[in-house]
Design a protein around this nucleic acid. Structure first.
Lengths: 337, 337
DNA sequence: AAGGTCATCGTAATCGTTTACAGAAAGGCG
DNA sequence: CGCCTTTCTGTAAACGATTACGATGACCTT
């Protein structure tokens, strides 16, 4: 754990100048003899270049940050899983930020781009405020946002269409003959929360079903909170025959509550979730879910960022990943092998 | 995306020297008037300190790396989830490395500590070679290893006791009356693979059961490979009444195969896994699993590293997290609410 | 042999900070 | 008022790399 050799150490041992050392190590044309002496000196000393010093001069760190609300959420983890290999292949390291959905913390991450410890940022904010947008515009490094931002915001953007997603699920439930379809959502002041709320109302209208506020309950995007919300919902609307959940963790909570209260899924109550996390497939009954393409979105974000890091100035791009309904036993009762 | 102000810019605007700017920004004693001028200049310019330059001088990056074999593995993700908040609270950022269980890649991560882009490393190698140990000893920054290393290795180390873990599970299966207990393992040249293999044999002996090599099958630590291995196992030993799986992904694969081949779990075949990943609790039937305390190990590793970063030289420490059997329906049939 | 070309090398500046050191200003005291 | 002590501030040297520029010497040409 000593203090490690620098190019100066090498220069002394090889009897050349630090400039020559640098040139050799960077493969610039140098006399054969010098190359040999420098390389063997470097080898003997176990030289490893100091990336901090290099970054200071080159203004590149080969690091990229990913900021998400909550590292415990499987959706974000699925994204990390896709982002990491893409960046790694391009020679970038991935730095993780978990912001606890705190706006100040997210703005802070954006501001911290000025510290230059990363070359770019992929961010997936739960809420998008004015302050966010200002900070994004002022950011000192390329940013890719996953999630909807207002039209006209000048930023690379990956979005999905959760409105259509909700619609797909409700159509499916309706086609199975369900008419009293409850809805359990997360906070309405979040981007997904508000989008899914209006989507639910619209889909009902399109299906010719009445909007009954007794069928709607709001909790949070976690399993325990989801379970609690489902309990409240069942108390208010014991006659419902289906529950649409704003994400899969809520849906897993719903399965817990329904099992505990002795209702069969899907015979008594069909359940659908959103995000299609890994656990959806192994749950019992396996959970019907709307895939919002977390993996694709993660990969697309990484690729968009890499492209921007290569190109610098170009028009911001928007990539939309379409939702896809994954039907499983929690709605149809049929096991998919 | 312009080039951002530096302390030089601030110094000019405030009419002081860069030394004074630095002092003010670092809270060193300075005349009231100077403080005010520097701070307002910094404010107006939207100054953000360059962390790369600061790191070069201070020799600290406030970053810590976590290197794991496969970022897709829920066990490692569970660790990331615990490590991140601990580091964040201490002001460190977390950099992720996925090494694909490649020895060369892992050595590379160790070597790259010399690049000084992180202050420390938490590593969880699947295989531990001579080269690993050499690289660890030579590492230029503190390292914490999760997983067993040879006695006497001078490194902070978090371990669990998977031997006892296997023993717990087999005792449990035996107490349920199972006598033909199969074992599906991952590669034997990995640390967990070899440990669990000997543990299985030992536990059988302790229970007075014969070792039947027809009851043992080797695949890999993934769901699909696990399923394939279980298929082979069932073909060779159709009369088995329990399967011990070397990890939960294999166990999930086992559940898939058993269901597909029409065997009831646990009536016909009881199944137990290891690691107690999130999915174990939601699977159907819910999976009995040996928790190796992934969360605790992650947290302990982070704390050990922080302590070492604070203390510098001290004797290496070893923390052992005991295994714990989590009984669920896949062995007892009783649902745990 | 003188002059020119070319490859190679070393000196020094630079990136943006921190900090040792010395100089300047200010205050206290006889 | 002069001297000493105490603040405070500026100059300059690090940290470890990259790189522009000019110096050096080998080699070729005439």
């Amino acid at each position: 754990m000593s203090d490690g050799p620098t190019i100066t150490t090498i220069a002394e041992r090889a009897g050349v100048s630090i400039a020559s050392v640098s040139r050799v190590l960077n493969g610039l044309p140098t006399r054969e003899n010098t190359v040999r002496r420098v390389l063997s000196a470097a080898e003997e000393l176990g030289y490893v270049p100091n990336s901090v010093a290099r970054s200071l001069k080159s203004r590149r760190t080969n690091q990229v940050a990913f900021a998400m609300a909550d590292i415990g959420n499987p959706v974000y983890l699925a994204m990390v899983r896709e982002i990491q290999p893409v960046l790694k292949a391009a020679g970038y390291r991935l730095v993780l930020h978990s912001t606890d959905a705190d706006v100040a913390d997210e703005i802070d991450v954006l501001r911290s781009l000025g510290e230059r410890y990363v070359d770019g940022l992929i961010m997936i904010p739960l809420r998008v405020s004015e302050a966010h947008l200002k900070a994004v515009e002022a950011a000192r490094a390329p940013v890719v946002i996953i999630g909807s931002v207002p039209e006209g915001t000048r930023v690379d953007n990956i979005r999905t269409d959760s409105r259509t997603g909700v619609r797909l699920a409700l159509d499916h439930l309706h086609s199975l003959g369900r008419r009293r379809i409850g809805f359990v959502n997360g906070p309405l002041d979040t981007v997904p929360g508000s989008a899914r709320s209006t989507a639910y109302a619209e889909a009902l209208t399109a299906l010719g079903l009445p909007y009954d506020e007794n069928l709607v309950e709001i909790g949070d995007f976690y399993r325990a909170e989801g379970a609690a919300a489902v309990s409240r919902l069942l108390a208010r609307a014991p006659d419902l025959d289906a529950i649409m959940c704003a994400n899969d963790l809520i849906a897993l909570g719903a399965l817990d509550v329904l099992r505990r209260t002795g209702r069969r899924v899907p015979e008594d109550v069909a359940v659908a979730g959103m995000d299609d996390i890994d656990m959806a497939a192994v749950a019992w009954p396996a959970l019907t879910s709307v895939s919002l393409g977390s993996a694709e979105r993660g990969r697309a974000a990484a690729e968009l960022l890499l492209d921007r890091l290569g190109n610098g100035e170009r028009e911001p791009r928007v990539v939309t990943v379409p939702p896809r309904l994954v039907v499983r036993a929690s709605t149809t009762g049929e096991e998919t092998p």
